[in-house]
């Protein structure tokens, strides 16, 4: 399996991903790993129908994602993984995805979330999952675009006095 990048981004596939990230990471396959969307035929169809040209896009549950990336039939694919929240990233990690770095992109404000930056807001649940990921050896970065500096996500949380 060749996973080029895992991004935690509540907007999933959006302009920045389509325009910059896929090219910058050399990815040819996008996997949106999300249980809710994977169970919704309309949303699933829609996301695939509007996927960027030349990119293979799969909408899979977390369990299906794990099976997909471990399947030798997909060994040649250069995969860009998208999840909505740190808790899903943690499930992938515990399922054996084998990544040592994951990146936090956009996390929109939800009720009860605290501000980390202009584009990142975290809930207590997000913080808990982020802590677990780092405790289990995954370093979390925070990088909006491939061309900008990569921050350490836990340091940002510390700076925002959230941990």
């Amino acid at each position: 399996m060749s996973i080029k990048h895992l991004r935690i981004d509540n907007r999933l596939v959006h302009g920045q991903i389509v325009v910059s990230w896929l090219q910058a990471t050399g990815s040819d396959t996008v996997i949106v790993a999300n249980d809710v969307i994977a169970a919704d035929d309309f949303q699933k169809t829609m996301l695939v129908a509007v996927s960027p040209p030349g990119i293979r896009e799969r909408i899979l549950s977390i369990d299906e994602t794990l099976a997909y990336v471990k399947d030798p039939a997909h060994a040649d694919e250069q995969i860009f993984l998208l999840v909505k929240e740190p808790a899903d990233a943690l499930r992938l990690h515990r399922g054996g995805i084998g990544l040592t770095t994951m990146n936090v992109g956009n996390m929109a404000f939800v009720v009860g979330a605290k501000r980390v930056s202009n584009t990142v807001f975290v809930s207590p649940r997000d913080i808990e999952a982020a802590r677990a990921l780092t405790a289990e050896g995954v370093s979390l970065t925070c990088q909006m675009m491939p061309t900008v500096a990569r921050d350490d996500f836990m340091q940002l949380l510390a700076k925002a006095k959230l941990i």
């Binding site: 035929d41 309309f42 169809t45 829609m46 695939v48 129908a49 509007v50």
Partner: peptide, 17 residues
């Protein structure tokens, strides 16, 4: 016509189902 793209794709999926 993004609406048509999605509408047609979903109609195909529904027909297959």
């Amino acid at each position: 016509d993004a609406g048509a793209v999605v509408r047609e794709a979903y109609a195909r999926v529904r027909a297959e189902m």
